[in-house]
């Protein structure tokens, strides 16, 4: 049976891992390569590295860091941040990234999803969507939540799937950093609507939040940062508790 995945997210800036509360107020949480290796030892199923400043400051994700990670890591990982062209993606693929995650670049140029899927396969293309509830509607936001768009989240995700996204990484900006639980309502709507894997992101604070998101929605994976980085939820404990609740996990 396919396991539900637990994915620590390492937000990277200047080669160091950081995690913001609601994407502001950054805190240093360590060296990405070392953290990655530790997470693999602990039983993380996959890792996501997001260069959170990349879009804002137009910087490319660090190829050398990706290579260092790929040399050490024996589980898959995704790289996001600042990827706007086929060439960006190809450099990351060649450096050992299993998937790339695109966000703003896809909103600005939706055809990029198709180009990437055609060049490297749908399995390589994760479309990350930051969503926030504005006047009763889920609206896509860009630049780490700084910029609202015209797009409604459900419509954009459906379009991303049709264009060749292999996976959706959905972050609720209303929940992110609050540690009050995932946005199960929206995640449930999205997983019923599309036929590609969905990663839940934003709001993890306790083990119960992970149990809840897997029991109440059809998500395939749950992503979190600070609860893992600061050791608040050890991954082996989390997986044991998920298993106890009959949620399929890799132990």
């Amino acid at each position: 049976m396919l396991s539900k995945r637990i994915i620590p997210c390492l937000d990277v800036k200047d080669g160091r891992t950081v995690k913001g509360v609601n994407f502001v107020d950054l805190k240093d949480a360590g060296d990405p390569v070392e953290l990655a290796w530790q997470y693999a030892q602990q039983g993380a199923d996959e890792l996501v590295f997001l260069d959170i400043t990349a879009t804002h400051e137009r910087r490319k994700t660090m190829i050398e860091m990706v290579k260092s990670v790929a040399r050490q890591l024996n589980i898959p990982f995704t790289i996001g941040g600042g990827i706007t062209t086929i060439q960006d993606a190809e450099a990351l693929l060649n450096a050992g990234a299993d998937k790339i995650s695109i966000n703003s670049a896809a909103v600005k140029n939706p055809a990029l999803i198709e180009e990437l899927a055609n060049a490297f396969g749908v399995q390589f293309v994760v479309v990350a969507v930051d969503t926030k509830l504005v006047e009763g509607k889920n609206r896509v936001h860009l630049n780490g939540g700084r910029l609202i768009t015209e797009l409604e989240t459900e419509d954009w995700i459906r379009q991303a799937e049709n264009r060749g996204a292999g996976e959706i990484l959905l972050t609720s900006m209303d929940h992110d950093g609050t540690k009050q639980g995932f946005d199960c309502g929206l995640l449930n709507t999205i997983t019923q609507m599309i036929n590609i894997p969905v990663i839940a992101s934003g709001g993890a604070g306790t083990v119960e939040h992970f149990i809840e998101v897997f029991e109440k929605t059809g998500v395939d994976a749950a992503l979190a940062a600070s609860v893992f980085h600061f050791g608040e939820i050890p991954i082996p404990d989390l997986k044991q508790k998920l298993k106890y609740h009959n949620i399929p996990v890799r132990l």
Binding site: M1, S3, D45, E46, V122, Q123, E167, N195, P197
Partner: peptide
């Protein structure tokens, strides 16, 4: 076959 109620791609850890 997506009509079998599975998501495509098959992505993740399986036994």
């Amino acid at each position: 076959d997506k009509n079998q109620g599975i998501k495509i791609p098959h992505m993740g850890w399986n036994n």
